[in-house]
């Protein structure tokens, strides 16, 4: 199997006639990508780590002064920042749980022989193909208490989805669930269709109930791919910006990336915002690691 990864160059090919070896062809393809990654990802990452220990402001010509861990110390002592993290955590939990329930549920419904299944699946995928900002603007209109269609359809009168500080975060999460459940659905559907049919037949012969079949056969076999969907959605929800920014400006919906954006590009506290970005990065890495550990465990079963 391993040999198949690097295919031998056909001696009669044009590349071979120009004296190029397998290795040089491989390098030709890989080096530009690696260079691109170094210039646009790795370099800024390291550079901003340096800035996070300074009081640098990108809006001025003043030189950056080294301030040690001051940025980190002040950020981690700032009650407003901790509040932003608490909001983000709440948002991630509501949004990801919602997406898994709706997405996996829809996948279960679609995982059978029904007419127009392909078309139905494609249509259900539409929300996640839209731009975040567009979804945000549309849902802002849908939620509008004066002329929004949601209150009209549900008969809620002038219920304030976005102006109510307690409701606003759930309203944003609801929009996110609408947009990204299809993603979970798509991956779950792939997992579900890969479950061998004979397992269900065996379960039926043993007269296993639907709950037993679901929890002992379906869920364990779909779990690895579902975990991947959850990892992706958690990372994305943790970084969420557009939806929350476009939909509301409640302090109760100021997720960490909105605070980060304001700090970096409105207040131009470049050094401090680099430090905050690193704190966020470390948190996302930590959470993802927990998931990946769990994913590996699930796979071993």
């Amino acid at each position: 199997m391993v040999t198949a990864v690097v295919t031998r160059l056909d001696p009669a090919s044009r590349a071979a006639s120009r004296g190029m070896s397998d290795l040089s062809i491989r390098n030709l393809f890989i080096i530009p990508t690696i260079l691109f990654l170094i210039v646009f990802n790795v370099f800024p990452l390291i550079y901003s780590l340096g800035y996070s220990f300074t009081d640098f402001r990108a809006s001025t010509n003043a030189p950056a002064n080294f301030v040690g861990l001051q940025n980190y110390r002040e950020l981690l002592n700032d009650p407003f920042i901790w509040n932003n993290f608490a909001i983000t955590a709440q948002y991630v939990i509501v949004s990801v749980v919602g997406q898994v329930l709706v997405g996996f549920g829809t996948a279960m419904l679609l995982n059978r022989d029904i007419p127009l299944k392909g078309l139905l699946t494609t249509l259900l995928l539409l929300p996640m193909m839209l731009s975040m900002a567009v979804v945000g603007l549309f849902w802002k209109l849908l939620y509008d208490p004066s002329f929004g269609i949601i209150n009209y359809a549900l008969g809620l009168g002038t219920f304030e989805w976005l102006a109510n500080p307690k409701m606003a975060l759930y309203a944003v999460a609801l929009t996110d669930i609408w947009m990204w459940s299809p993603f979970v659905m798509l991956l779950s559907l792939a997992g579900l269709s890969a479950v061998p049919k004979h397992l269900y037949e065996a379960a039926a012969i043993d007269r296993a109930g639907p709950f037993y079949t679901f929890f002992r056969i379906t869920l364990p076999l779909v779990a690895p791919i579902l975990m991947i969907a959850i990892i992706f959605r958690t990372m994305e929800a943790f970084k969420t910006f557009d939806l929350a920014y476009v939909l509301t400006s409640q302090p109760t919906t100021e997720v960490i990336s909105i605070r980060l954006y304001k700090m970096a590009f409105q207040e131009w506290q470049t050094g401090r915002s680099c430090a905050l970005a690193y704190i966020v990065l470390i948190m996302v890495l930590a959470i993802t690691n927990i998931y990946v550990k769990y994913l590996n465990k699930v796979k071993e079963r």
Partner: peptide
């Protein structure tokens, strides 16, 4: 203010006039 008047700037405030709010 009209209901839900919690994130309003120039767009919404002109709408308040154009939409009879």
């Amino acid at each position: 203010t009209p209901p839900g008047w919690a994130k309003t700037f120039f767009v919404e405030n002109n709408q308040a006039i154009t939409e009879n709010l």
